[in-house]
Simulated scan of single mutants.
Amino acid sequence: MSLSLVPDVIFDCCRQITPAFLAERGVTLLLSDLDYTLAPMSARHPDEAVKAWIQSLQEAGITFMIVSNNRSGRRVTDFCSQLGVPYQGHARKPSPAGLRAAMARAGADAAHTAMLGDKLLTDVLAAHRAEVLSLMVEPAGGAVTLWQKVLHALQAPFKALCREDRREKH
């Protein structure tokens, strides 16, 4: 079990993660955070681009499940029902327990699983502790609050050490 905060791969947004990219790495289960990973926290509904992206993953045989620390089960339940995907709630990330429970539900093992998120201290650390591929995205909607801006600034040195940066260079 690794306690590393360095993500394996960084993207600008979730839609840059293609079925081919996941297949190349043997991933058959993609776990994902919800808030600021798939949509800003203020979004009550998934947009059409996220729906189409998840559908493309599923059509390629990749199982998709949301793993959330969100304490409001209603938002996650509503969001997931609109996407037609299951979720593992109260995941307690960075504990690996929620990721392992999701893998068990999906019948997948760590070698064929990736975790997608926007935060090092929860999503990436949980991925490493569960020994799955850690994928990171820039926060959907951007860092809005002062706390988010500070948190994302503190993540910069760890993101700079990432093995594979797939963000578009402007």
Rank of each mutant, 00 (worst) to 15 (best):
L5K: 06
L5E: 02
V6K: 09
P7T: 03
D8F: 04
I10T: 05
F11D: 06
C14M: 12
I17V: 09
T18G: 08
P19N: 13
A20I: 10
E24R: 15
G26W: 04
V27P: 00
L31N: 04
D33C: 04
L34V: 02
D35S: 11
A43T: 10
A43C: 12
E48A: 13
V50Y: 05
V50E: 08
V50H: 09
V50G: 09
K51N: 08
W53D: 04
L57K: 08
T63Q: 15
M65I: 07
V67C: 06
R74V: 11
T77E: 15
T77H: 14
T77W: 10
D78K: 11
F79W: 07
C80S: 11
S81R: 15
V85D: 06
V85L: 03
Y87T: 08
Q88L: 00
H90Q: 15
R92M: 12
K93D: 03
S95G: 12
A97S: 12
G98S: 08
G98K: 06
L99V: 06
R100Q: 14
R100V: 00
R100Y: 04
A101K: 15
A102L: 01
A104Q: 15
G107R: 14
A108G: 07
D109V: 14
A110E: 08
A111T: 15
T113D: 03
T113F: 01
T113V: 00
A114D: 05
M115D: 05
L116N: 09
G117N: 03
G117E: 02
G117L: 02
L120F: 01
L120Y: 02
L121N: 14
L121Y: 13
L121M: 14
T122Y: 01
V124M: 07
A127R: 00
A127L: 02
H128C: 02
R129E: 02
A130M: 01
V132Y: 03
L133C: 09
V137K: 10
G142N: 12
G142D: 10
T145L: 00
W147K: 09
V150R: 05
L151S: 12
A153P: 07
L154Q: 05
Q155W: 04
Q155A: 10
P157R: 14
P157Q: 13
A160M: 11
L161R: 15
R167G: 09
E168V: 13
H170N: 12
